[in-house]
Amino acid sequence: MSSPQETNRSTSEVSVVADGSAQYLTFTLGKEEYAVDILKVQEIRGYDAVTAIANAPPFIKGVINLRGVIVPIVDMRIKFSVGEATYTEFTVVIILNVLNRVVGIVVDGVSDVITLPPEQMKAAPEFGATLDTKYIKGLGTVDERMIILVDIEKLMSSRDMELMDEVAA
């Protein structure tokens, strides 16, 4: 198996198996399928008891109490403008451990853990100004499906997420 990586290492490092493959957790937002490095995932839980934060951007739903730790919750559907931001008992929150912080992201559903060999990863094409691809590490293909690999550290530390006081990246 791959060795655990330091969370604050450079963003290009993911859990790499001997042949260069890496493991990802895939989740859906609307009809699109996304993936994050599995080693950044702490746990998966349901969506409830969120305390709203005043004057925060709409995609920051608020904070929750995760066993005594105050954790902010980001709704990726609002952030990426995909799907519909509805909250039911099936709404899933992925708790991520990025840059020594704990952050929860709301997604429509968690699908699978996949192993992607490097040859199945393609660089993300430029979409021009309408879509920001700087948080997309690449596009992968599994069983004819396209999976968008999110550079979660870059995303979470970016200025427009407004998650941190000082932008670390």
Binding site: T51, A54, N55, V63, L163
Partner: peptide, 22 residues
Amino acid sequence: LETNYRKVRGVSGATIMGDGHV
């Protein structure tokens, strides 16, 4: 709040209420 989030104006910190909410 700053451990995992950032400073929020008008809020000095958070606590966990009796019902588990923040």
